[in-house]
Amino acid sequence: MTWPKAITFDCYGTLIDWEGEIQMIFKEILERNGVKNVDVVALQRHWENIQFDYIQNQYMPYKEVLRNTLPMAFNYFGYPFTEEDSRYFAESMGEWRPFPDTIDALLEIKKYTKIALLTNTDDSIIEETVSRIGVDFDEIVTAEQAGAYKANHDGFHLLLKKLNLDKSDILHTGFGFKYDVVPASELGITSCWVNRYGETRPANVKEDYLVGDMKTLALLVKGLASSSINPVRYEG
């Protein structure tokens, strides 16, 4: 690819420890309801599948998605919960913590190109998250703005419009293969899969770049910049 004028990121799972934070909250809810020694990884993965299918339907705010899908996952396993637990889960997302390598990697990448977010969440949630990360993004597009969740293409089109860039100008980076790599491939956008847990590809699609974490992505970007025909140094 030509040197990317922007690297666009999925947020939750790529920059924020989505799985770890959800597992921690589920464990907290279960223990509060008297349930211990539960496989919270299995619970979180089951919830993830429910959530992915749920957001492919008619758009609703993500806080509602969180509030509505927790009971589905807990009921499947017969785990107790309260309505307050569902509300607590829905309100917690803005406080979920970034991976240890996120901030330094973003600051390094910003030296070479623009950075932007394309995220399956609400404006109010991502505002909290970006404040927690503490790094300025050149553009942010949420599902609320697009009126649809990835893997729908609408958010990608809106982000390109806001960045005033062509699809050939960006590198889209994400942890969620179905959410990010697949639609990027469908749109002809160069993709990078941040596969932190060594997962098997869940679809017959191939990413253009594969890294295991954000630190490695920053090294890749620095290496590509140094070997570029027209080396860049972004000061925006």
Rank of each mutant, 00 (worst) to 15 (best):
E139Y: 05
V130F: 03
K162H: 09
T129A: 14
E144G: 08
T142M: 04
N152I: 04
H157V: 06
A143D: 04
K150E: 11
I126D: 09
K150D: 08
I133R: 00
I125P: 01
E127H: 13
D154E: 12
H157Q: 03
N152G: 11
V135L: 04
K162D: 05
T129V: 15
E127C: 10
T142A: 06
L159G: 00
F156E: 07
I126K: 01
I125K: 01
L163R: 02
A148L: 11
G134M: 12
L158Y: 00
L160R: 03
L163T: 08
N164T: 01
L165I: 11
G147W: 05
I125H: 04
T129C: 12
D154P: 00
I140M: 11
I133S: 02
L160A: 01
E127P: 03
H153Y: 13
D122V: 12
S131I: 14
E127G: 12
I140Y: 05
G134I: 15
L159I: 03
I133D: 03
I126P: 07
T121W: 08
A148F: 03
L165V: 08
D136V: 14
T142I: 05
E127T: 15
G147E: 11
L165A: 06
E144N: 09
D122G: 07
K162F: 04
T142V: 10
G155M: 10
V130M: 09
A143P: 02
A148P: 08
V141M: 09
L158Q: 01
I125E: 11
H153L: 13
D122I: 13
H157N: 09
D138H: 12
D122Q: 07
R132P: 07
